[in-house]
Amino acid sequence: MNTRNAYFDNAKFVLIFLVVFGHMISPYRTDSNGMLSIYHFIFIFHMPVFILLAGYFS
């Protein structure tokens, strides 16, 4: 059986954390432009990276 690669496990952890963080700041995104920029930055790339990682392991 193959061993797990810690790089991909850590990448998935960071992406999951960014999803949770993005949902936590969503009520505050209308209060400031900085929060809105952070929110948009997170949600622009996290789903495509999840799809790429899932495709790599399928």
Rank of each mutant, 00 (worst) to 15 (best):
M1Y: 01
M1A: 07
M1I: 04
N2S: 08
T3D: 03
T3Q: 03
R4Q: 08
R4W: 02
R4V: 11
N5I: 03
N5D: 09
N5E: 06
A6I: 03
A6F: 01
A6C: 01
F8A: 02
D9Y: 00
D9G: 08
D9V: 05
N10W: 01
N10D: 01
A11T: 05
A11D: 00
K12V: 02
K12C: 04
F13P: 01
V14F: 12
V14Y: 11
V14N: 12
L15I: 14
L15Q: 01
I16F: 06
L18G: 07
L18K: 07
V19C: 07
V19H: 05
V19L: 11
V19S: 04
V20Y: 02
V20L: 12
F21L: 09
F21Y: 13
G22E: 08
H23V: 11
M24S: 05
M24P: 06
S26Y: 10
S26E: 13
S26T: 13
S26P: 08
P27R: 07
P27N: 05
Y28V: 07
Y28S: 09
R29N: 03
R29S: 10
T30I: 09
T30L: 07
D31F: 14
D31K: 12
D31L: 15
S32K: 09
S32I: 05
N33L: 14
N33S: 11
G34W: 13
G34E: 14
G34I: 15
M35L: 13
M35F: 10
M35Q: 11
L36M: 13
L36Y: 11
S37P: 00
S37D: 13
I38L: 15
I38Y: 08
Y39H: 12
H40R: 15
H40K: 15
H40D: 15
H40G: 11
F41P: 02
F41S: 14
F43I: 00
I44M: 12
I44N: 10
F45Y: 14
F45A: 13
H46K: 11
H46I: 15
P48T: 06
P48Y: 01
V49E: 02
V49L: 05
F50A: 06
F50P: 02
F50G: 02
I51P: 00
I51N: 04
I51F: 09
L52D: 04
L52W: 13
L53N: 02
L53T: 04
L53Q: 00
A54G: 11
G55T: 06
G55F: 14
Y56Q: 10
Y56L: 14
Y56G: 05
F57Y: 09
F57V: 07
S58F: 11
S58P: 02
S58Y: 08
